[in-house]
Design a protein around this nucleic acid. Structure first.
Length: 297
DNA sequence: TTCCAGGCCCATG
DNA sequence: CATGGGCATGGA
């Protein structure tokens, strides 16, 4: 079992303030897929992972985070500890579904994820459960990624750059369990590596323009593009609609009306949830996934 | 065993 | 504009 303090060489850690933050809700909400639970010596629960290529151990201690010494600023930025959550909550609509989601998810933050890693992992996400996306993400890292030493017996793997995946064969990618998604990931990696689409240049575009650019990539449609905008470009209004969110919207906001079209749901969600709609969406998603199936009605 | 999963793409009305 | 089927894989 991975020890939380392996990364710190036996206790070289520091504490940073993290008010209104839930490490577990943030990392278990299906926005990022490579963090592993690690049980610390005092049985407190933490996570280990890489931020870019820096190994990091994070343990929540109340309203503080215990992190690997030297990674304080990196961690604070990655987990978006500067997002004004109370203000964001005040911008949410006050309706029963939103209230329930908020009560369930307080402290969940939308992280600042490296854009390529986010794009690539979400290309592999279609028609897959979160647990399996995690599995594929680790397989791709271990097969193609750069190994990073993280303590005596721990090696983590960075997510492979586009150029690395671009030179892979589709069959190699399929060995990571990607199935039909291998072709899309490979083709997208080649487009990005060739400069056909500049991921950094997207930052200066409007949400709509950046969405359209992302949708040029093989295997990227509106849903995945919105996930990438939300988790990889800090576009907190982007509102991805997957099967879970569609179910929530239809049942909680349209009385289960089966005749409501996906376009109507899209237009409703674009306005009803306000300027931080992506946050609202993530809360609705995480809440729904934590509900027993019997509660669907 | 059957069902379903953070969809996309392309062919038809 | 919208609907339907195919596409790989593995956990529940």
């Amino acid at each position: 079992m991975l020890q939380a303090d392996d990364l710190a060489g036996g206790g070289e850690v520091s504490l940073i303030p993290a008010p209104l933050f839930s490490l577990e809700r943030t990392l278990e909400s299906g926005q990022v897929f490579h963090w592993r639970k690690a049980t610390g010596g005092d049985s407190e629960q933490g996570y280990t992972g890489l931020i870019e290529e820096t190994p990091v151990s994070v343990v929540q201690r109340g309203e503080q985070l215990q992190v690997t010494r030297g990674t304080e600023a990196l961690v604070a930025r990655y987990f978006a500890l500067d997002h004004p959550l109370e203000e964001i909550y005040e911008s949410f609509p006050a309706d029963p579904a939103m209230d329930a989601a908020l009560a369930c998810c307080r402290g969940l933050r939308l992280i600042r994820q490296p854009s390529w890693e986010c794009l690539a992992t979400f290309i592999t996400s279609s028609m897959k459960q979160v647990a399996h996306i995690r599995q594929m993400s680790h397989a791709v890292r271990e097969r193609f990624g750069r190994p990073v030493s993280a303590g005596k017996e721990t090696t983590l793997f960075a997510y492979p750059e586009p150029a690395r995946l671009a030179q892979a064969r589709e069959e190699e990618l399929r060995k990571c369990g990607l199935g039909f998604r291998a072709k899309s990931l490979l083709a997208t990696a080649r487009m990005v590596a060739a400069g056909n689409l500049d991921l950094e240049a997207l930052r200066s575009l409007s949400d709509a323009a950046a969405l359209a650019e992302l949708c040029r990539l093989p295997g990227v449609g509106p849903k995945i593009a919105n996930c990438v905008l939300l988790f990889g470009y800090e576009r907190v209004r982007a509102f991805p609609i997957d099967v879970w969110i569609e179910r929530v919207l239809r049942q909680r906001y349209f009385s289960g009306n089966k005749a409501v079209t996906s376009r109507q749901l899209k237009e409703f969600s674009a306005t009803h949830f306000g300027p931080h709609g992506g946050y609202a969406q993530q809360y609705l998603f995480h809440h729904a996934r934590n509900q027993p199936r019997s509660a669907w009605a």
